[in-house]
């Protein structure tokens, strides 16, 4: 990025995240081995790969839950600034670099209401508005206004996923599919630059899965943020992602558009492995079928 190219019209798909030579070792186990890829604004970047390939570990490195053994994780802001995520603590990554995530096994605050879950997501903003509790204690105007704005943001997202009527119920009482969607909009309430979703479609029925696709496309197209998506369901990946990164045994084996990845022999081989096709675990077999068919 030289000064001469600093275009007046900002490229909507500007680079957002650079992962360079990321490695993560647990004792002797190499969970990620020298992986590099890029994610862009207003694009859905899918990370796929067999079980244990290291997908969740990439997320954990990005969001500060693990400290990478080697590698550089650079997040770019629209203003031209950068954050080196590998040097930041988890909560600061969420607060300052604005990387939000969901978890493979849902992590809501089950005994708090749906709305409260979304208000907690706006913690730092509200903390400042309440002058770290001092003026908030006495219901100062500024805080009351900020809280109302926070509710409005929550309502905006709840309307989007059709959960507004259940806003005051305990999050733990929602059906599974609704919990998945709630976790996603809770992450969106932090107003992130990069949204990392760990298998959001797991356990959803086809109708819920279609709704999820709409939500993700809405986030990409209307909010123009980058989305990193870990997904096992190949139909979803092929349909909505702009860019696919394939991991296998911690290594990146392919990287490109869905069409490119689909026809990459390395990917087919990775999903086939050494095994005979009829010995494959059912999950992988269906994945493979969809790839070959699609």
């Amino acid at each position: 990025m030289t000064a001469a190219v600093a275009a007046p019209l900002r490229d909507p798909a500007a680079p957002l995240l650079d992962v360079e030579h990321l490695s993560m070792r647990f004792g002797g186990l190499v969970a990620i081995d020298d992986v590099s890829f890029q994610a862009r604004n207003a694009q859905i970047t899918a990370i796929i790969g067999p079980n244990g390939a290291g997908k969740t570990t990439v997320f954990n490195c990005l969001t500060g839950f693990y400290k990478p053994s080697v590698g550089r994780l650079t997040l770019r802001t629209p203003g031209g600034g950068t954050y080196l995520l590998e040097q930041m603590e988890g909560h600061r990554i969420a607060q300052h670099a604005r990387v939000a995530r969901t978890f493979q096994n849902i992590r809501l605050f089950p005994r708090m209401s749906v709305l409260e879950n979304l208000i907690v997501a706006q913690h730092n903003k509200l903390m400042r508005a309440s002058t770290y509790t001092l003026t908030g204690l006495f219901a100062a105007k500024g805080y009351v206004r900020a809280e109302r704005a926070a509710v409005d943001l929550a309502r905006y997202w709840l309307d989007r996923i059709g959960l507004s009527p259940r806003a005051d119920e305990d999050a733990g009482n929602l059906p599974y599919g609704a919990q998945r969607r709630l976790e996603i909009i809770r992450a969106m309430c932090t107003e992130p630059r990069l949204l990392c979703l760990d298998e959001p479609a797991a356990g959803l029925n086809p109708r819920e899965s279609a709704e999820l696709n709409d939500l993700l496309l809405f986030i990409r197209d209307e909010h123009k943020i980058g989305v990193l998506l870990i997904e096992h369901d190949m139909t979803v990946v092929m349909k909505i992602s702009d860019h696919v990164v394939v991991l296998d045994y911690g290594r990146k084996i392919s990287d490109g558009t869905p069409a490119e990845v689909r026809s990459d022999p390395a990917v087919v081989r990775a999903y086939l492995g050494e095994a005979e096709e009829d010995e494959l675990p059912p999950e992988v077999a269906t994945d493979l079928q969809t790839i070959v068919k699609a």
């Binding site: 909560h91 600061r92 607060q95 939000a100 809501l108 708090m112 309440s130």
Partner: peptide
């Protein structure tokens, strides 16, 4: 009663529910 309705009080309860999720939302545990 008052602090329960403020961000710090909600963060306490959220921390009780799930510390990992709190960190992912930018709350300093």
């Amino acid at each position: 009663l008052r602090v329960r309705k403020l961000p710090i009080g909600r963060a306490w309860e959220a921390l009780r529910e799930d510390e990992t999720a709190c960190r992912a939302l930018g709350i300093n545990p």
